[in-house]
C-alpha cells in the first residue's frame, strides 16, 4: 500500500464510511460580504486608497500615457517603463515616455499592466498570468501602475471568479489579487510599506 492509500484509509476509518462516489458541489447561498458596497466606483477608490494604493481617473485609454507621465513627474520617478504587449499601441512617446513591451528584469523600476477586474469590497486588483501577461511586471519593479476600466469593477470576489469563468478557457496558471503595495510588519509589528514587491501601486481608472 502506498502512503496515499494508507492516508485515505485512515480518513475513511475516522469518518466510518467508504469514500463517497460523488459529493454535490456545495450549493451555498452567497456568503455575506464583510463590507457591503453601496457605490462601485466610490467604494473601490476609497478602499484602494485605504490600502495605500493611489488612484487617478481618465476618460479613455488614449489619455493614459499623459496620466502616467503626470504621476511620474509628481513622484520624481524616471520616465522609463516595461509594459504588457497589449499596451504597445498607446502613444507613450508623445508623453515623453519610453515603454518597452517585455518582461521586466530586476533593475526595471516601473511596470505598467492592465487589470482583469477590480473588486470594490476591498479595493483589490485582479491580474492573471498568460503568454502576454507577465506576472513579474506587477512584482519586480518598485512601482506598479495598473490600468483598470471602470466597467470592469465588480462588487465582490465571487463575481471576479464568475467573470474569469465566463471569459477564460480555464483558470490561468497564476491568479493574483493585489491590494496595495507590498508590506511587512515582521519587526515589532510596525507596518513598513515596500517589502519584496512594489513600493507603490498606482491605479489609473479608465472611463
Amino acid at each position: 500500500m502506498s502512503a496515499r492509500d494508507r492516508i485515505l484509509e485512515r480518513v475513511r476509518a475516522g469518518l466510518k464510511r467508504p469514500t463517497p462516489v460523488s459529493v454535490a458541489r456545495p450549493e451555498r447561498s452567497l456568503a455575506p460580504m464583510a463590507r457591503p458596497v453601496s457605490h462601485l466606483l466610490n467604494d473601490f477608490i476609497a478602499r484602494a486608497e485605504s490600502l495605500q494604493s493611489t488612484v487617478a481617473q481618465v476618460a479613455d485609454l488614449n489619455a493614459v500615457p499623459a496620466a502616467v507621465a503626470e504621476y511620474l513627474q509628481a513622484q520624481g520617478l524616471p520616465r522609463k517603463s516595461v509594459i504588457w504587449p497589449s499596451l504597445k499601441a498607446l502613444d507613450w512617446f508623445s508623453s515623453g515616455l519610453t515603454a518597452e513591451a517585455r518582461p521586466p528584469v530586476s533593475e526595471d523600476r516601473l511596470g505598467i499592466t492592465e487589470t482583469f477586474c477590480g473588486i470594490a469590497e476591498t479595493g483589490t486588483l485582479l491580474l492573471h498570468s498568460g503568454v502576454d501577461h507577465f506576472s513579474t511586471t506587477s512584482l519586480l519593479p518598485e512601482t506598479h501602475i495598473a490600468i483598470l476600466r471602470v466597467d470592469r469593477l465588480v462588487e465582490r470576489m465571487e463575481q471576479a471568479f464568475a467573470l474569469m469563468q465566463s471569459e477564460l478557457d480555464q483558470l490561468p496558471r497564476a491568479t493574483n489579487f493585489i491590494s496595495g503595495p507590498s508590506r511587512t510588519a515582521d519587526i515589532e509589528q510596525t507596518i513598513v510599506i515596500g517589502a519584496h514587491g512594489p513600493r507603490r501601486v498606482h491605479i489609473i481608472l479608465v472611463g
Binding site: 476591498t122 480555464q170 491590494s179
Partner: peptide, 20 residues
C-alpha cells in the same frame, strides 16, 4: 481587510509564457 497578495496557483507555465 485583505492581505496584499492572494495568489491562486494552478498548474505549470503555459506554453509560450515567459514566467512561472
Amino acid at each position: 481587510d485583505i492581505t496584499n497578495y492572494v495568489s491562486i496557483l494552478t498548474g505549470v507555465r503555459d506554453e509560450g509564457a515567459m514566467d512561472g
